[in-house]
Amino acid sequence: MQAQTLTREMQDWVAAQLATGYTPHEVFQALLDAGWQAAAANQALGLPVPGAAIPQPAQAVPWVKADASGAMVDAGDKWVTVSEHRSAPELWVFGNLLSTAECEALMEAAEPRLARSLTVDIRTGGEELNHDRTSHGMFYTRGENEVVSRIEARIARLLNWPVQNGEGLQVLRYGRGAEYKPHYDYFDPGEPGTAAILRRGGQRVASLIMYLQEPEEGGATVFPDIGLRVRPQRGSAVFFSYALAHPASLTLHGGEPVKTGEKWIATKWLREREFI
């Protein structure tokens, strides 16, 4: 296949789309739809081209060991059911990870502390408001109370990853119309603020999204690259790992807008090393 040449017009168009607020993934997909090869699209977006250096994969990531049937996982203080498992990316959907009482306890203690959700500013390493994320949230400190400690210990056993390698549990509330557009959870190695972020515990290598309350309609967690939609259900969770901080991880995901009711989730991000 003949290589495609980047033109100034194409580069100007890409810059204009990003400035308007489209994500790199959306622009990448638009270029593919227009007939551009992936290598040229990556190059236009400043992403690695085939054969170029890409981030080194993490030496280890959290992992799940199901029982012989593949339907249950020992989480220490309880057995968790497996609703779905995929290997590209490594993704598991769990049932009954949290009890109703645990969900309600997390929500009740979090509600007075909720504020408009921020995202990491990868240019500076700080935080910023992002129009792609319209939820309200808060962070528990690790081991903040008995319920949080119990859940963290369960997650550590479930995912074979030390408690200290996890960020604090984040609780998020999505009201009607609130969403989080598709994004990656890892920190982009090519951004100037990433080095400062990684000093706190290395790269993120996995995410666990736990559903504390399902909305009446909408709010599914979507994975566009693999065509998966996970419907929120109280007590259930979706886990996915990403050894490589790159779109090749296939971990692009987002939260669809809530149409009716409220969605509450608790997210646990896991790092390579102890998070400080």
Rank of each mutant, 00 (worst) to 15 (best):
Q4T: 13
T5R: 14
T5G: 14
E9P: 02
E9H: 14
M10P: 10
Q11K: 15
D12M: 13
L18F: 10
G21A: 12
Y22S: 15
P24T: 05
A34Y: 12
Q37C: 12
A38V: 12
A39M: 06
A39T: 08
A41Y: 14
N42M: 14
N42H: 15
L45H: 09
G46K: 13
G46W: 07
L47M: 15
A53R: 10
P55C: 07
P55R: 02
W63D: 05
G70D: 02
A71L: 11
G76Q: 03
V80T: 04
T81Y: 02
E84D: 13
N96S: 12
L98E: 07
S99C: 09
C103V: 08
E104Y: 08
A105T: 09
A115Q: 14
R116W: 04
T119R: 11
I122N: 10
D132T: 03
D132A: 08
R133P: 01
H136M: 09
G137F: 00
F139K: 04
T141P: 00
E144C: 00
S149M: 12
E152M: 05
N160D: 07
V163K: 12
E167G: 04
L172G: 01
L172R: 02
R173K: 08
R176D: 06
G177R: 07
A178W: 02
K181E: 12
H183E: 07
D185S: 05
G190R: 08
E191A: 15
I197A: 09
L198P: 07
R199N: 15
Q203S: 04
R204C: 07
R204Q: 03
A206L: 03
L208Y: 07
I209R: 12
Y211T: 05
E214A: 06
E216V: 06
E216L: 08
A220E: 10
R231M: 13
G235T: 01
A237N: 01
F240H: 04
S241N: 02
S241D: 01
L244Q: 00
A245V: 00
H246A: 02
A248H: 13
L250E: 04
T251C: 06
R271I: 00
E274H: 11
I276H: 15
